[in-house]
């Protein structure tokens, strides 16, 4: 290697680093996105008491249909922001299951009573153990389960109307096809 090439090396390294920094500054880069390791794995086993006085909620209750599982809590502000989107999903015939995450059942009930119930069924995950099995970081999080009972997609944070229209609903429709 000639001396000239060696003296060019620091500049080359710096430019490479600068390109990385520029990429990292991309305005639409989601710094908080976290890929789930549960994707394409069977939905974890759970058996949660129902928020209403119905039977317990477990994966078997899906009986071969596509379901969307939404973790929520009455204490969670973003969940309230997300709620109208869930109501819209319900009207589009998307099967939603709610899991009340680390929330007092009576407070979950009040929340649902006030804001409307988008869920076909609601399970109570009082200690967050089921959430842990799903790999939940915080609420809200939303999981799409296919007909074979595998997790196909996770949405972290509140669903927006755009995400619901562009990503969630098309995915659910596609998975629903036999």
């Amino acid at each position: 290697m000639s001396r000239r090439l060696i003296t060019l090396l620091p500049l080359a390294v710096f430019l490479a680093v600068a390109v990385y920094f520029a990429l990292a500054l991309r305005p639409n880069r989601d710094t908080q996105a976290l890929p789930s390791v549960m994707i394409d794995k069977p939905v974890p086993a759970f058996d949660l008491p129902s928020l209403a006085d119905g039977p317990n909620l477990s994966p078997a209750a899906a009986s071969g249909e596509v379901v969307v599982i939404n973790y929520f809590a009455s204490w969670c502000v973003p969940c309230r922001i997300e709620h109208p989107v869930l109501m819209a999903l319900k009207s589009q015939k998307v099967t939603l299951w709610g899991i009340a995450y680390k929330d007092k059942p009576e407070e979950s009930r009040t929340f649902i009573a006030q804001s409307g119930d988008p869920y076909a069924r609601i399970g109570v995950d009082r200690d967050g153990r089921t959430g842990f099995d799903f790999g939940v970081y915080g609420v809200p999080e939303t999981y799409v389960i296919d007909r074979a009972g595998h997790i196909r997609k996770r949405f972290v944070g509140p669903l927006t109307p755009e995400i619901a229209e562009r990503e969630l609903v098309p995915l659910v429709r596609a998975l629903a096809k036999p």
């Binding site: 000239r4 003296t7 620091p10 500049l11 600068a18 920094f21 520029a22």
Partner: peptide, 16 residues
């Protein structure tokens, strides 16, 4: 980042 590129890129070019 632009400052960085000007200051460091410039000086390293001069160095090269």
């Amino acid at each position: 980042l632009f400052l960085l590129i000007a200051a460091i890129g410039g000086s390293l070019t001069l160095y090269a």
